[in-house]
Design a protein around this nucleic acid. Structure first.
Lengths: 151, 151
DNA sequence: CTCAATGCAAATCATTTGCACACCC
DNA sequence: GGGTGTGCAAATGATTTGCATTGAG
């Protein structure tokens, strides 16, 4: 999904962010960024932590949280709050904006993109005289049985 | 907003829910329901707890959490997870389905209703063969200055 | 009477924070 | 070198849980 060339682009975006904000370019930060960009799906901090430990990359959770914060600020990662538990994250640089459908039986997370969301956003901005810089749309549902003609 | 007659309807809905689920009809439960239906806006557990204490209604937070759970199951209350902190709740019996716009400077919560949300929902159900029973749409924005002709 | 519900306090769990040491600049 | 970043462990804060007591049915 994200190949070596892609990662170099992402890394340079991060470098530019770190430099312009006078943050240090530590190896931990780049290692975390690289591991996040290897993730195909949404992940939580614990999973990322376990994953990195399993590969013998030593990072503390505190550093994971700190670095994720920087990645959120730089726009390289998005945070989602599905349900009431821990936050989920996903890389965002090459992905187009999308929303989520959670299948509650399985916990499966499906991404979708519907242009009408942008139309609603535009309407809300006009009606309430606001600038919207972020939104969250999540549908919660269950798979229909193949023989379910009608619910 | 919710007058005495309205509350009697809500209370009877709750009674029916409690009876059909073999739960006891304790005074605490009805007191909590009544106080919630006096709230005009979204509230969190701490605020409700403080509010009830200030009126010398003694309930423990454990009971608030337990009762809110029953109210969610009975459809009399909705839970929202704005941001990453505590949950917010709101009474739901007389309200039509709506979504939320959060003004980030002030924390103000504005409700809106856009029929296109239902159209998107329908599309998602058809495309992914799912039954959607719940959704959450939240826009996060800031007020435009009156002289902001263009952002 | 009996067992579910309550109140209190202790336990959880994700996230944050404080602090000593390490290392980027 | 100086001060930010890291790792660890302790602190926080919302929510949950355990348990003795209360009270609804």
């Amino acid at each position: 999904m994200t190949d070596q060339n892609d990662f170099e682009i992402v890394a340079s975006v991060f470098t530019q962010f770190l430099e312009s904000n006078k943050h240090r370019k530590t190896p931990e930060r780049y290692t975390i960024l690289k591991e996040i960009y290897k993730q195909k799906d949404h992940f939580d901090i614990d999973t990322l932590f376990a994953y990195m430990n399993s590969k013998n990359y030593r990072v503390s959770k505190a550093t994971l949280y700190n670095t994720i914060e920087l990645l959120l600020e730089s726009g390289l990662v998005r945070r989602h709050q599905f349900g009431q538990n821990q936050a989920y994250f996903e890389k965002s640089y090459f992905d187009k904006q999308h929303d989520h459908l959670i299948i509650e039986d399985t916990g499966e997370v499906i991404e979708f993109c519907d242009p009408r969301v942008q139309l609603i956003k535009k309407t809300i901005e006009d009606v309430f005289k606001v600038s919207i810089h972020k939104h969250s749309l999540v549908f919660y549902g269950t798979k229909k049985e193949p023989d379910d003609k009608k619910s």
